[in-house]
Amino acid sequence: MADLSKDEVKSLGRAVGLDIDEPLLTEVTYNLNALRELLDSVNPPGLDQLEPLPIVPPHERLAHEPG
């Protein structure tokens, strides 16, 4: 996965209504590219078949569930 450039990161910011300027822009670019790289490198077998279930496992009773 190629690193995003600072211009691309700035565009991402604009897409959500944020104007990211220096010196933050450089550091946010480092941070975002590091996180992208780390997540991109983790591809255990079967991950595509895994759904991100709710954080409370189904067998646990939530306070607001009936019964």
Binding site: G13, A15, L18, N31, L35, R36
Partner: peptide
Amino acid sequence: QIDFLTGAILPAQL
């Protein structure tokens, strides 16, 4: 600031 800005623009698929 860096952490929050990173979180605000992290692509949804990630």
